[in-house]
Simulated scan of single mutants.
Amino acid sequence: MSSDVLDLSASSIELTRVICDIDSVSDNEGPLADLIENTVRALPHLRVDRFGDTIVARTSLGRDQRVVIAGHIDTVPLNKNLPTRFETIDGVDYLWGRGTVDMKAGVAVQLKLAAELTDPVVDITWIWYDHEEVSESKNGLNRLSQTNPELLQGDFAILSEPTRSEIEGGCNGNLRAEIRTRGLRSHSARSWVGDNAIHKAAPILDILAAYTARQVEVDGLVYREGLNAVGISGGIAGNVIPDECMVHINYRFAPSRSGEEAIAHIEELFGEWEVEIVDLAVGARPGLDAPIAQQFVAAVGGVPMPKYGWTDVARFSGLGIPAVNYGPGDPLKAHADDERVPLQQITDCERGLRAWLTGATR
């Protein structure tokens, strides 16, 4: 293998190992982006463009439909989990190491198929993007949607998020809010002079503890919501009655609920206190009623499930493009120190995508 290109004749398992061993923690995607760009530019059937550390490669075969398949190349920080290694646990063969699940196994499958599928039944836009694991403003797919939205256009989109190589449709929305109580400072030896803001937060916690989250059916998939305190802060010193307390809550809401409706629900619950919405990302409906999505399900097999977390499929949904999550790896192992992907899931993902994109029967 040349030092400046990937050997795309290697298996998708071997490609996963190679690209995982390249440190690409967010803000350090450049070397891997360079390698991907150099590799796909050598493929004559693809038109390749680069935007920062995001690489876009497209076929132009004049097909009636276009599919967008995207995966991010950054990872969360390392914790003594590189280089990768192969291991067997309870008879299951794994590739262990940072990025194997989230989401370089999916990226490797994309690269393998991008090289080999020169005559797919649909036109394909392959996207490898940067900065998914950090702030919205840095996200490569978000930047692309703002500067070159035409490159995201298609009839269907697939995000290579880890799903155990099963289809997960759409995603929940995500809202974070800060709920504040106010009081009056005083010396703790004379607490009756003050007004304890932390004590006044107790009813907020009571609401959260008693809350029953909904299970909502959307286009045949049942999404589980969640409303939880994820942080609490208050207090000035060990001998001062605090005059402010903040409860940080996270609301995961079904994709049938708009951002405005999610905000209204939070204000309905906590309206007697100060409410500040600090983050809001709407969800994505499954989109599985589209004929092209049904063809994908038929080719891949299995029963589609809902995606409970928020993913970048919502960007495609916001453009009116039905989108699903489909990639190797158990999402419960994403970001874990013992992150590891079953080798069979890498093979299954490649087989499923290849069958659909070539019109073959799985």
Rank of each mutant, 00 (worst) to 15 (best):
L175F: 12
G271H: 07
D27S: 14
R143A: 02
P44H: 04
D337G: 13
V107H: 05
I13D: 13
E260L: 07
F296I: 00
E87D: 13
W96N: 08
K200T: 02
N79F: 15
W192C: 06
G302M: 11
A360Q: 15
V282S: 03
M246K: 15
Y326K: 10
G301Q: 06
E133Y: 11
I19F: 00
V222T: 14
I89K: 14
A197D: 07
A210V: 00
L175D: 03
G99M: 14
Y211L: 11
R180H: 13
E87F: 05
S3F: 13
E87L: 14
E217L: 11
V67Q: 00
T100A: 02
G154N: 01
R190K: 11
V275Q: 05
E268M: 10
A209K: 14
D337I: 15
R63K: 11
H248I: 02
R58F: 01
T54M: 10
P322H: 14
A237E: 10
A284C: 13
T54E: 00
A201L: 14
A334C: 10
L269H: 08
H131G: 00
E276F: 04
D27K: 15
S256Q: 03
S135E: 13
A42P: 06
D34G: 11
L269K: 05
R66K: 13
D279C: 08
H335Q: 07
I241R: 00
